[in-house]
Structure formats: structure tokens, C-alpha cells
Design a protein around this nucleic acid. Structure first.
Lengths: 177, 177
DNA sequence: CGACTTGGTTTTTTTATTGAACCTGCGTTA
DNA sequence: TAACGCAGGTTCAATAAAAAAACCAAGTCG
């Protein structure tokens, strides 16, 4: 499958991945949230090659995640700033940071601490249900077809699990653990 | 920079990206949360080539995100199941889904709806501060060096924005170094 | 004038991905 | 018993993408 077909899939993960699903892009966005804005600064901090950086920034601008705004004239120079669409990626970045803090931190602990200005405390991000406020766990969530789902007969990539065909029963001695 | 160096960076984003920062990997994980578990089923749903699928599954198992468990003997066959470490990726996946729902949905609306079993309602995921419960916004968060930060003189990739050198005011032609 | 800065592009080499075919162990059917 | 099918891969040639290094251009500085 080609990547330009991804954004046409009837799946929000596929569509999002078509925009940010690239290693360098995610690292660029991390730096954006740390107030990095200029080509040379991205390049120095990330250690990415210049052609790749240029191509990723170009794509993020095309997708309206970053905006290229002039910060001086003569010589005319631009910096890259998060748009609202880009700022909305914050939960994704924070979720990634938090998973890394929990599962990938070295013995010395996490590299960064996050302080919530409103309450003053060092915090972790927690994902909750918008309706009842309880923290989310995968087993507490059921998935249903939405209005933008692909047509049912195709068994599309984002069809809910409970509409797919029955799995063969487990016959192993070491089944379900 | 090579990807095997990423996991050694003093940055939780870089470390997480070294595990899941690949387009196919993210789509595989999406399907894992939809209860897909077998090679053939991943392959049919994703349209990924078999060598890539095999290499990604192998890496996810190596990183303890998935576990390869037998579901039958004679012939011995395995399926791939999320470990706890893998289940903990749920907020990342949900954040990705939600951004796609908001910013990439077509006219017909979102492809999938999520129902919270505990409260019964269709919901959106919301990321809040673990300490005060308020929704997070990037401007309400300050970043500080944690115990696992790299040494300060190197100006590491995850040094907090407010410890880096002051940006030069607009209209200057020679930026800081 | 000549050097330097920012923000790139070009070119060559190396690496990763695709697409198609093939392999293995075992069970099933004729 | 042979032939076929299935799940879960591996192998191989062709193609695409990324890395590394050099180059370019507009403009300013000394």
C-alpha cells in the first residue's frame, strides 16, 4: 500500500498517521512544543539531515500543522509555528512522553518533569471519558461504526471487532494467559 | 542519525518513537486494540507486505509490547497479544484517533464511535492533569529538567525551553547560537 | 571586497520497502 | 497415497527513501 492512499482510508488512525506517522515528524513536533521554531535550531537539536528536515517541515505546512511565518525582513526569514491544528496534537505528544516515562526511563528517572501552571504541581497526563470523567481503559470501551465508516460488505480496516467473524476456539494447553 | 541510537536519547519521546514511531507499527497497534491477533488477519486488514509485517511484529515482541502466545498445537500456531506495556499504549492510540476524528474526518463524520461501558455513553477522550483534573493545554504546562536529563552543558534534545538561550528579538539578522 | 548566516537544494551512496514467489508443517479430501 | 489447502512465515530482485556531504543564494557585517 502506498502512503498517499492512507489519508483516504476510513480510519482516523490511518489519516492521522498519514500526517504525523513518521519518526522525524514526531520529534519535530516534540521540539515545536518546546518552542523550537527555526530550521537551524531543529537541525542542530534533532541531528536530522537537512533534506529530510526540509521535506518534513514542508509537509507539516502543507497539512496546516505548522505555519511558516516571517520573523524578519531583509533578509526575509521564516519560522515554523504550530497552528491550532498543530496545538491540538498536544495530547498525542503528552501520551507519548508519558508512556516513555513509564516504560522506557533509565535508572535515573524521567528526563523531563511537567508542571501544571494552573495548579502548580508536577503531574502526569491522564486520559478520561468526556462524559463521566473516569480514566479510560481499553477493556471499558466498545467500538461501533460511525457515520463515516466504509461500507459494511468490504469488512473495512476499522470495522468493529464484534462485527468480524468468529475466531476459531482455542485448543492449546497454554491458552489464554 | 541512526534509529538504534534513538532509544539512548535522554528524551521520552525519542525512546517511545524508537518503539512505535513507524507508520505500519501504529496501524498494527490500532488493530491490536480492535482484537486482531493473527498474522494473516493483520496482513489482510492492513494490506502491508508480509516481510514488513513480520519484521514489525518481531520488533514489537522484542520490545515486550506484544507477546507471541500459542493458540493451538499441531500445527503449532501463535497469535500476538498486547502485554500490559502494550495495553498502556491505549492513550496514545486514542489521542491519535481523536485528532483524526476532529481534523481529518470527511463530510460523513467519524468512522468509529467509542462507547464507554462504565457510563454507557459515546465519548471523546480528554487528557487531564493527574493532580487537579483540569484539561491540559500546552500553554498551561511548564517543563523542567528531571533526574534522567542529560548533562546541562550539552544542551540536550530535551532541555526545557525556558533554560535555553534567549531568542533574539525579531528583526535581527544574526540569530543566537 | 570577502566572510558569514540562514535556509535551504543537489548529488551520490546506503538502507528500507515493495511485490512476487517460495517454503514448511500439518491436516483434509479424493 | 497423492494432491491440495492453510497459517505463518522467508527469500529475492526491483524500486523508493534516507543519509552524508557538498553546494547554492540572498543578504548582512566588517
Amino acid at each position: 500500500m502506498r502512503w498517499n492512499k492512507l489519508e483516504n482510508e476510513a480510519c482516523s488512525v490511518a489519516r492521522t498517521v498519514s500526517v504525523i506517522g513518521d519518526r522525524w515528524t514526531l520529534l519535530i513536533l516534540r521540539d515545536c512544543f518546546l518552542r523550537v521554531r527555526r530550521f537551524e535550531e531543529f537541525q542542530a537539536r534533532l541531528g536530522v539531515t537537512r533534506p529530510i528536515l526540509a521535506s518534513r517541515l514542508r509537509k507539516l505546512v502543507k497539512d496546516f500543522v505548522l505555519a511558516k511565518v516571517p520573523y524578519q525582513e531583509r533578509p526575509l526569514r521564516y519560522e515554523y509555528r504550530l497552528t491550532q491544528k498543530g496545538l491540538d496534537l498536544y495530547p498525542i505528544v503528552m501520551a507519548i512522553v508519558h508512556w516513555g516515562d513509564v516504560h522506557m526511563a533509565g535508572k535515573k528517572g524521567r528526563p523531563l518533569l511537567h508542571q501544571h501552571v494552573s495548579c502548580g504541581k508536577t503531574f502526569d497526563p491522564v486520559m478520561i471519558c468526556s462524559e463521566c470523567g473516569e480514566p479510560l481503559s481499553p477493556k471499558q470501551v466498545h467500538v461501533h461504526r460511525g457515520p463515516g465508516a466504509a461500507s459494511p460488505r468490504h469488512m473495512p480496516a476499522d470495522a468493529p471487532a464484534d462485527e468480524r467473524k468468529q475466531r476459531r476456539p482455542i485448543r492449546s494447553s497454554r491458552a489464554h494467559q
